[in-house]
Design a protein around this nucleic acid. Structure first.
Lengths: 145, 145
DNA sequence: AGTACGTTAACGCAGCGTAATTGTGA
DNA sequence: CTCACAATTACGCTGCGTTAACGTAC
């Protein structure tokens, strides 16, 4: 019998470092932190498509400032356990909370973006009529919104 | 002559710590990091409305994970210098880049939010028909989109 | 006006806690 | 390559001892 199953899309650590531009050391570190769970063939690590998907999420999470702890929590939400209803319900709760937090974060980011946009507008205004005195920036108490 | 001008909305450090819930130590630290530039009366720090607006931006920036270095850059964009046209144009360039970066960040956050939403959908599907085996999560290569 | 006293804050530099690697020697 | 553990680096403060300036009360 051909042994197709054993090479079923499992990547060794070197392939991972090439594909994702992380060091092997870091992959082992993530494993120690329980973010990844490659299977072993003997002592060598083999990463499945699922591991690769998880790594992708990890790296994305890092890019916008989530800590590894937060990322682990997120990943756990994606790992539906054995499907016990109560367990699932708890996971759903947790996910909904996390979602709300992320949406708040996006709202703040939107505010910051809007502020920066209007600041660019101010700069361009100054550039157009290069004579006006135009002192103020940052309104005293831009306040609520 | 009444000395109205001297009390022109300048807050001592204690007022700041109360209003913003930061320690005096932290305010001094931010000053050392050139994020704030309170004026001095003698040796005492006095914070203007502009300083307060900046602090507000600093705290918001922190809330969504910007480093102090990034925040300082942002603040600098809000500080239009003496209005030299070339200088202004450079500032505008910089601001536009920063804006693009923030928009990329928001796009990634949107992706993460969408992923989490759909994951919640999956969980709820499982909760509805509590019999299905339903193994998979995290598509092998969710990829480009 | 002078002065005592309590509060508030300045200074400065070492140290701390966490997070995320990274190095090392086997 | 593996493992376990120590060391490092970056960040963001934080503690603390000491001194100085104020503000009100007498």
């Amino acid at each position: 019998m051909k042994d197709i199953a054993s090479s079923a899309d499992l990547w060794p650590i070197g392939a991972m470092t090439n594909a994702f531009d992380v060091t092997a050391r870091t992959l082992r570190f993530y494993e120690a932190e329980e973010l990844l769970h490659p299977v072993r063939r003997g002592t060598a690590r083999l990463y499945s498509a699922r591991d690769r998907a998880r790594l992708k999420l990890i790296l994305r999470g890092k890019r916008f400032g989530f800590s590894l702890a937060e990322i682990r929590e997120l990943l756990d939400l994606y790992d539906l356990g054995d499907g016990q209803a109560t367990q699932l319900a708890a996971t759903r709760e947790h996910a909904v909370e996390k979602l709300a937090a992320m949406e708040r974060q996006r709202a703040e980011l939107d505010d910051a973006i809007a502020d920066l946009r209007s600041q660019i507008g101010e700069i361009e205004k100054l550039l157009r009529n290069k004579t006006a005195p135009a002192p103020a920036t940052l309104e005293p108490d831009g306040s609520s919104r």
